[in-house]
Simulated scan of single mutants.
Amino acid sequence: MPDVTVHLPGLDLKNPIMPASGCFGFGQEYSQFYDLNQLGALITKATTLKPRQGNPTPRVAETESGMLNAIGLQNPGVDHVLAKELPWLAEHYPELPIIVNVAGTHVDDYAAVCAALKAAPNVKAIELNISCPNVAHGGMEFGTDPDSAAQLTQACSAVTDLPIYVKLSPNVTDIRPIAEAVSRAGAAGLSLINTLVGERFDLMTRQPILANVTGGLSGPAVKPVALRLIQQVRSVTDLPIIGMGGVSTADDALEMLVAGADAIAVGSANFREPLACPNIIADLPKRMTHFHFENLTKEIHWEGTK
């Protein structure tokens, strides 16, 4: 049986599969379908300093090979997450590593949330969301400029001992300088990609389908883009990478690992199939055997990545 364990800063994973932020809430809905202990880890919905109502509706639109969303980081705020969501996970899944996705408008907002999360013992890492394309302020504004991304990473690293994984945006000319900047600023790892910016129109009204006009494209359509960007980032850093973008099968996950990822987050596939993560986890050893992968160490990365 192939070895599917993965060891990353702050994270000892029984397998490399976890749900991506924004596609799994805080786990309670999906716990009705399967035992979340099957997961390697769980990345929560984005958490901000204060509650956010998100964008006006409609906020979701289907596309031919995926979906557009403009949720706008709706969440109950860090105080509620610390009082309700994380204790629920700790009570029901005490061994499951939790990664909290942190978002904000200003550097101080991000830092305050990161500092507050020290109170939750089941939080093993932070995913710093510098790449959300669906908010008016913050988010992608940090993720498209190396200096801003580095400043934010440094500020958050200074207030917590938790390892910080910085979530990078694909909506840039060259992702490599941003990856290098946050690496120098203290990131323990990277996660990529976030969604691509897109939009759709209603032909009857001649108006955008989304109230926000644009939204983030996810799903199978983005996988080739994700693979390219993961390979590019791997070429300039040895930091661990949590790869995501269009993963819906074990073969998709293995392709991400070959491109340079060390673990895998599954996003909008969870909406189409609530059992997407456990199905991939169950299939992974069989597909590894088929492709002659004995384990998931860096030896499986494509040799051209460095």
Rank of each mutant, 00 (worst) to 15 (best):
L117G: 08
A90H: 13
A103K: 14
K118N: 02
G138W: 10
S65T: 08
D147P: 13
P133N: 01
V81A: 05
V81K: 04
G138P: 02
G138Y: 03
E95S: 15
K84R: 05
L73V: 12
A115M: 06
A112G: 00
M67Y: 02
V100P: 04
N101R: 00
L128C: 02
L128N: 06
I130M: 03
G104M: 08
Y93A: 13
A125E: 10
C114K: 02
Y110F: 10
N75F: 13
V113C: 01
P94Q: 14
D79A: 11
E85T: 07
Y110G: 09
V102F: 05
I99F: 01
G139P: 02
G143E: 01
N101C: 07
T105K: 14
G143N: 10
K124V: 06
H92W: 09
G104W: 03
N134T: 06
S65F: 12
V107F: 01
W88Y: 10
A125I: 04
C132D: 00
P97I: 03
A120H: 00
A115L: 08
N69G: 10
V135R: 06
N101G: 07
L96W: 15
A116F: 08
I126P: 02
A136I: 02
P94D: 13
E95A: 15
L68Q: 02
A111S: 12
L117I: 00
D147K: 15
V81H: 11
G77I: 09
T63N: 01
I71M: 12
N129V: 12
C132N: 00
N129W: 08
A70G: 05
A119W: 02
V78C: 04
H106A: 08
V100H: 08
K84I: 13
W88A: 07
A125K: 10
H106P: 12
V113A: 03
Y93Q: 15
I99Y: 09
E85N: 15
N134R: 14
E64N: 09
A103D: 02
P121L: 02
A120D: 09
L117S: 01
C114S: 11
E127R: 01
A83R: 14
N101W: 04
T144V: 15
T144A: 14
P76A: 07
N129S: 07
A112D: 07
H106N: 13
V107M: 01
N129T: 06
S131F: 07
T105D: 09
S65E: 07
L82P: 13
G66W: 03
V100Y: 05
